[in-house]
Design a binder for these strands. Structure first.
Lengths: 191, 191
DNA sequence: TATACTGGTAAACAGTTGTTCACCACGGTA
DNA sequence: TACCGTGGTGAACAACTGTTTACCAGTATA
């Protein structure tokens, strides 16, 4: 494990506990340096690598900074994860899950009307109410004064809702159909 | 919509585009203030509300800053979301999903062996390799030189794996059973 | 009417910041 | 041997930071 990698690990650790990047002076202790210039040069290297970026002289992490390794596919028959854990792709979860902050909210699911779409009781649904619903989307809709999670459909200029469970009949709203948000992602908790 | 709320919105927007909090001077423009003291007082208020925090004189967002509103349950028969969108609970997604940064990685699922556990092809699995597997956990395991996603079980001191799909037989490893990580969350993408 | 609070301006302050410059020890390479 | 790149020290600098203090207009309250 190289020194630089080790220090980046420490920087990330600092960030996740403090939700901010440390000052150069704070990095002195963090990296065991005696001169702030040593920090300056290290930071410069990380900026060139695209891990950090600077606006004026204010330091900020880049998307790459938060990226989690996507190790590959699993259970495909042939093993795709190797012992040395190389990553082909990487994803920054926060930005990936919440593309429109301020217009995103969560709902916890109860009921089984969307079970065939993989949405079960207790799941956490991420909704975006900036997006306009398109046919095929799963939406949180207010039908006849009741909120439900259903597929959004359109036929003959009229919109209607269907469940992903044969036990539930399609809903053709009599009056208004208010869309609370479009389902963007669903989080299932196993721990 | 109050002024303060509006400004917090702008602050959050700045954060998500720049991945850092703005300087007081930058907030002058952001909030349309003429005096940095106006900023100072506003920040002070937010600190008291627990939205921001200060270490020394370095500003940082708190967990509350990132919190997304959990509006309630949906599809429970009775409507629980109101027109004024009040939130009972709120969750900070990043910290919620990645409790052990540096020990967390992602896998994209292929195959249908865990379909009854709600894990489908194409889903993104969040794994934690710091956690030790307990019976009942879903794990990424290396069995006989092949990686699979299965339930972790134990009987008579021996560990074995089972699928969440009756089409697959339980796996009793002959030699070693290496656990790559425990499934913490699963993300399903609908958009 | 007088009072107090809220939300803002304006100017001045000390401390710290990120940066720069000069210098050095070490290791590899020609 | 001489040379150069790397990775670090140490000191000095200007700029900017967050903070403080004093002041003010408008609004609500007693």
């Amino acid at each position: 494990m190289s020194d630089t990698h080790n220090r980046l690990q420490k920087l990330k650790q600092f960030y996740t506990t403090n939700r901010r990047l440390p000052t150069y002076t704070e990095m002195l202790d963090l990296f065991d340096f005696a001169s702030r210039n040593a920090v300056f040069k290290l930071i410069h290297k990380w900026i060139e690598e695209g891990i950090l970026e600077k606006m004026g002289n204010r330091l900020a992490p880049t998307e790459q900074f938060f990226a989690l390794p996507v190790l590959g596919f699993i259970q495909a028959g042939t093993p795709t994860i190797h012992g040395d854990y190389y990553s082909e792709e990487s994803i920054s979860l926060d930005q990936y899950l919440v593309p429109n902050p301020g217009f995103t909210f969560l709902l916890r699911v109860s009921g089984d009307s969307m079970i065939n779409a993989g949405i079960h009781e207790g799941d956490l649904v991420i909704l975006d109410n900036k997006r306009t619903a398109k046919p095929g989307d799963i939406v949180a809709a207010l039908v006849d004064n009741e909120w439900t999670l259903k597929y959004f459909n359109r036929a003959n200029g009229k919109t209607y809702l269907t469940a992903a469970n044969p036990a539930y009949a399609p809903i053709h709203p009599k009056e208004n159909l208010a869309i609370g948000g479009v389902v963007v992602k669903v989080i299932k908790e196993y721990y």
